[in-house]
Amino acid sequence: MFTIKNNGSNSLELHLTPEQITVQKEEIDSIIGYKNTEHHFSEIINQILSTLPQKITPRAGYVIINSIDYPDKKSIRLQDVIFNTEPIVTSQLKNADLMFVFLATIGNKMEKWVEELRSEGELANSYIADLIASAAAEKTADFIHDYITKEMKKNNMGVSNRYSPGYCNWHVSEQHKLFSFFPKNFCGVTLKESALMMPIKSISGIIAAGRKVKWNDYLCDTCKAKNCTYRIKNKQNKNQ
């Protein structure tokens, strides 16, 4: 189903097939806000979804860290790097025996297409393609998250939800610290000075694993970001 590239004893990279990443129309409807499944943009959404497999090259991977420390309630130390994760993220990643610094991407074909559509004046199509690309990137992150969960289950360890710089008050500039753990060109993703990942439709972050670690919903009630990806995801999970 996928090829595994071992980069060393503590890191792993998966090359997925496009068909392993599926996005449903109902998910896109829900993100846009449509409550009815049939609306004027149904055909456009279905058309873009049908082209998705030709426009993604999903890759995902992680680096395992076992030297973990919590200097205070708002930071986590992995090896000799201190992350200023702030209280929400720190509390959700506590008691870890292992930390997975992960990366997931769908490649750059979708973002190029989104830009083409935008420059042609096809704004609605560009917007929908962009949403679908983001959803596909999340599905790729889900894939590596599920993979880690299964692997850890074999060792009787639970895993946490995943957290990324830029969310839950964890500053986006800390992407640079995360990327210091990855081998060069890991999953084909690079980081710009502004902390923007290239390809753009990529997700990086941390997942905790351990015997005392359990999965919790995102703490959206404590955050004011109304349109955050994870608030939307949380809402979708609760509606399922």
């Binding site: 846009i32 456009i44 004046g121 609605a124």
Partner: peptide, 17 residues
């Protein structure tokens, strides 16, 4: 009023253009 969403607004903008 959440009666229409971003795609409808973008289509209106395109017509305006």
């Amino acid at each position: 009023r959440n009666e229409v969403f971003v795609p409808e607004l973008l289509m209106a903008a395109k017509a305006m253009q």
